[in-house]
Amino acid sequence: MAKIVVVTSGKGGVGKTTTSAALSAGLATRGYKTCVIDFDVGLRNLDLIMGCERRVIYDFINVIHGEANLNQALIKDKRIDNLYILPASQTRDKDALTTEGVSKVLNLLQDKFEFDYIICDSPAGIEKGAYLAMHFADTAIVVTNPEVSSVRDSDRILGMLSSRTQRACESLEPIKEFLLLTRYSPERVEKGEMLSLDDVKDILQIPLLGVIPESRAVLKASNMGVPVILDQESDAGQAYTDAIARFLGEDTPMRFVDNKKKGLLKRLFSTRAKEKVTT
């Protein structure tokens, strides 16, 4: 049965949608039938990042309200087999989402459409939209920037994950939580201008899925409507590929965490962050 994964953060603008696009495209490329859902009702964005904005006819809310069926609303990606997008509504607000409605759609995607992964791109905040995006999840990816307000919001979200999800409410096996540190700049960390990976790991205390560097490739990808993971020449694209390998239980060394401009000797003696995660 499909695993439900929420990409969440509390804070806005940290890279949830960028990550949802990369994760879903990466999993589909690896052969898993994957659906990515935009939960940001009223401010849909995922369709733009995936480059399918002109193909949106029906949306998540239409399906919940029975105005369209899933076959009509799911958009099949043109570049990658196995990849489908369920866009959010642009004209409604988050109150149009209901627990029963979301549950109904997720069940259909699991049972009738037989997806392997369902990725839920959460809106910012801790209100209804964010709550419903996480409520049915088996796994949470907490996207965090190395910045105080983002880390505090992530901590807040971890609290919600452990108390307000279905798994918590029904005392099932707890939701699996992973940290994805994005917009990381090793140069700035070295200069002492930015929280380091170790600082953030220490504070949040959840397994690390990966570190995505601050990268110009992300803006380029969003301009073009192509998930950045498809740009395999870019550092961010490669970092997302590594993170997905770890998500699938593979052991991959962390890249893009050390300052490249460091001297050779220093580099030789620095220890590499290595961690194995399983989902």
Partner: peptide, 13 residues
């Protein structure tokens, strides 16, 4: 250029 692709896409939207 990526920026001109972005401009065209936004115009349609």
């Amino acid at each position: 250029a990526p920026a001109s692709v972005a401009r065209d896409r936004l115009r349609v939207i």
